[in-house]
Design a protein around this nucleic acid. Structure first.
Length: 155
DNA sequence: GCCAACGTTGGC
DNA sequence: GCCAACGTTGGC
């Protein structure tokens, strides 16, 4: 099983939205970046866990845990001209973009904010989210980093 | 295939 | 709103 970190702007879709969704599940749609597409299409597996990271908000950070419940399949929002994420080059018979389905697992009582992540940089030195200029909305998380961040969420 | 221009992301 | 960083686009 692998661990991931998945970013979203809470003003668009936050962990509260997932918790309130039917069956606490949702498609993770709208990804339009090839590296992230490849991870979602080729590497994410059912049962993988991911941190839910809130970006572009008052307190950026990790707010909880979600689980992959459906592996990569074509992102149909790319086919819909009325959708914000419409992309004419993606065709149903040869889709460019893929998504996965995720399920709410838990919301941290105490979020692990970006400040706290940085304050623990010695133990989280590989964390891609801390690296300047990182723009990937999905990044892999190492086992040790996962355990450490879960500990931080309990402190 | 190069690379400048442009667009987007995301913290501040 | 600013700006650094980086992905994408498109002319050549």
């Amino acid at each position: 099983m692998k661990y991931w970190l998945m970013k979203s702007e809470p003003s668009v879709f936050g962990i509260e939205d997932l918790r309130k969704a039917p069956k606490k599940r949702s498609a993770w749609d709208g990804v339009r970046n090839y590296q992230v597409r490849n991870m979602m299409r080729d590497e994410m597996r059912i049962g993988d866990l991911a941190f839910f990271y809130h970006s572009s908000c008052d307190e950026p950070g990790i707010y909880g845990i979600i689980r992959i419940v459906k592996e990569g399949y074509p992102d149909h929002t790319a086919f819909d001209p009325t959708n914000d994420h419409f992309d004419a080059k993606s065709k149903p018979d040869n889709p460019t973009w893929y998504m996965v389905d995720v399920e709410f697992v838990e919301q941290f009582k105490r979020p692990v904010t970006l400040d706290r992540l940085r304050a623990n940089a010695e133990t989280l030195n590989e964390l891609l989210i801390l690296k300047r200029g990182n723009r990937l909305s999905v990044t892999p998380i190492k086992n040790g980093e996962w355990q450490r961040i879960v500990e931080l969420s309990l402190q």
